[in-house]
């Protein structure tokens, strides 16, 4: 088991935001996290990535309790792509992706061939190699998103957490990025709003509602008309091909 979360609970003051969530993700699997706004997807991702300390419960990644793993060692294995990253500093695309090597470099170590190849590969992967010298400030929203994904890839992690990575992306890059995430050997947990994309690219889906797991399983099992009605308050028509491989959700006005 690559990621195992048991009974995670987290809240601020009196309000419980994540309550009693347990999930497990196999090595190499892609888990989709869906749910309405404010259902706790980002909070859960932060708990899983060790960026917040749970009030109760544990997260185990590759067999180790992450609360016991030093920050730097953890970041060599785990990458996190924020929902929205911003800076005022005028850094270049290359500067940003090079930051991904931070956990692998000691304070004064030089730039190694391994750092180099990780950065080049990551930039090529998201189709941004040609723009590596451009200032991050001048990138479009989707390009920024891709640069951040490249930075996470440059970390060469075994586990990736992505918070709505397809925000701002055109349909071509939405599909490209999710296909890439799925095809990587890494284990990934992806928060998504587009249920069709989630169905297409995720091996398993966890539906959150008000901080708890409402349902989990394969896309076919989970994304049913009744569930969509009760969690997202929409009427939808779910069609699938005989093989069950391609499912399609059509929302009714």
């Amino acid at each position: 088991m690559s990621i195992l979360a048991e009974n995670l609970t987290w809240g601020v003051r009196r309000r419980t935001i994540v309550s009693g969530i347990s999930i497990s993700v196999e090595r190499g699997e892609t888990l989709g996290l869906v749910g309405p706004n404010g259902s706790g997807k980002s909070s859960l991702l932060r708990l899983l990535a060790g960026l917040k300390r749970p009030g109760a419960g544990t997260v185990t990644i590759n067999g180790r309790d992450i609360a016991q793993v030093p920050r730097k060692a953890l970041s060599r294995e785990v990458a996190f792509v924020q929902q929205s990253a911003a800076t005022e500093t005028s850094v270049t695309v290359l500067d940003v992706v090079r930051l991904g090597r931070t956990p692998h470099r000691s304070a004064l170590a030089g730039w190694s061939a391994r750092d180099e190849s990780a950065v080049v590969k990551a930039l090529e992967r998201v189709d941004m190699w040609g723009r590596r010298q451009q200032s991050w400030q001048t990138l479009s929203g989707g390009e920024r998103q891709r640069v951040h994904i490249a930075r996470a890839l440059a970390q060469t992690p075994q586990v990736m957490f992505l918070d709505e990575p397809t925000n701002h992306l055109d349909i071509h890059h939405q599909i490209e990025i999710l296909r890439m995430v799925r095809d990587l050997d890494q284990t990934s947990v992806v928060a998504l709003h587009d249920l069709n994309l989630a169905a297409m690219f995720c091996d398993k889906i966890v539906v959150l509602q008000s901080g708890s797991v409402f349902a989990s399983g394969t896309p076919e099992d989970v994304l049913t008309e009744t569930l969509l009605k009760s969690v997202f308050k929409v009427t939808a028509d779910v069609t699938r091909t005989a093989a069950g491989a391609d499912m399609h959700i059509r929302f009714m006005p």
Binding site: R46, A49, L51, R71, K72, A73, L74, S75, R76, A79, F80, Q82, A85, A86, T87, T89, V91, D95, V96, L99, G100, T102, P103, R105, A107, L108, Q155
Partner: peptide, 23 residues
């Protein structure tokens, strides 16, 4: 200078720096 690399990691904020392994 010893912490220079870590300072770079603050470019996108504290949480992002933490995600890059910076204490």
């Amino acid at each position: 200078m010893y912490l220079g690399r870590a300072l770079d990691a603050f470019t996108f904020g504290d949480e992002d720096a933490a995600a890059l392994g910076v204490p």
